[in-house]
Design a protein around this nucleic acid. Sequence first.
DNA 1: GATGCGTGGTG
DNA 2: TCACCAAGCAT
Length: 346
Amino acid sequence: MQRNQNYFVQELIDWFSKAKRDLPWRQTRDPYKIWLSEIILQQTRVEQGLPYYERFIDHHPDVHSLADSNEKDVLKLWEGLGYYSRARNLHATAKFISKELNGTFPNNYQNLLQLKGIGPYTAAAIASIAFKESTPVVDGNVYRFASRYFGVFDDITQSATRKTFESLLRDIIPSDRPDDFNQAMMEFGATVCTPSPNCDQCHFTQSCFAYQQKAQNQLPVKTKKVKVSEEHLNYLIFEHSGKYLLHSRTEGIWKGLYQFYLIRSKEEQKELLNKYDGKVTMESEIIKHILTHRRLWVKFVTIEIHEAKSFKNLSKELGLHPFSLEEMLNLPRPKVIVNYLQQAVN
DNA sequence: GATGCGTGGTG
DNA sequence: TCACCAAGCAT
């Protein structure tokens, strides 16, 4: 196994030396230039970031020049690239390195990680490329390529999964060429093992888990982003002789806590009433109360939400989370609550 | 740990 | 058309 992995690493680095794109930050080991390129390339394609890199180097060839600039000018140079906090952090870090560190860059992963705008990926990239530290980078390309090649099914949207990949790669990253290995992994993911992979031009199909299992489209595992669609929270507030009808949640989050009756639905309130008319369910019994028992004071409060927001967070935001029974008895009158809810929606 | 942050490309 | 994605980070 170890022998096979050595073979994989060697083939990958050989491929990289032949196929790598000729990019300006690959012509230098100046940590300032490596750093600048990595910040620009965060969530940004090479073609989009390249002209910005050139412009920054023209205006600010070293960290002192950038530090002596002002934030407004830096933002002007950044204009159109997006994620503008990157520019503010870039400038702040340039000032820190220039003034506090006398222009000397931190030269290892842990110290780089302390700098503003530098997270796990960027710290590993700079440490390996500028300082030859054997620390693996894990970015979107690496997740894709490594999960397919090695057959890793961990959900990459879970932050704990980063450790799985770091550990796997730490075992195979060659200590003499961590820079080439890291860049080769990313370059391969960016040009061959793309989301819709180019397996016909891949060197590694013989030993690729996904290719052999025809699982390219199953990897990497990424839990689906929740589709954004409307949903209604229908709160039923019953009042009779100054008393309010509540119930205790029987399951899920907030089990045992009290709340007003709630019917979650995709439908508008009117369709909801039609849907439950005549059906024998707990909820329909409540609907019947609404329709027939006029002496009950009943108010429907319907709130439109998007599924993209978790129910838990939205409820908290709107102040709809259930209360203990004791708290519930001390609530203001329902009408006040209704007004509050409607305001919260606006 | 979930969420917001931006612009541009892709199938 | 549009969901998804691209060398992530801060909060």
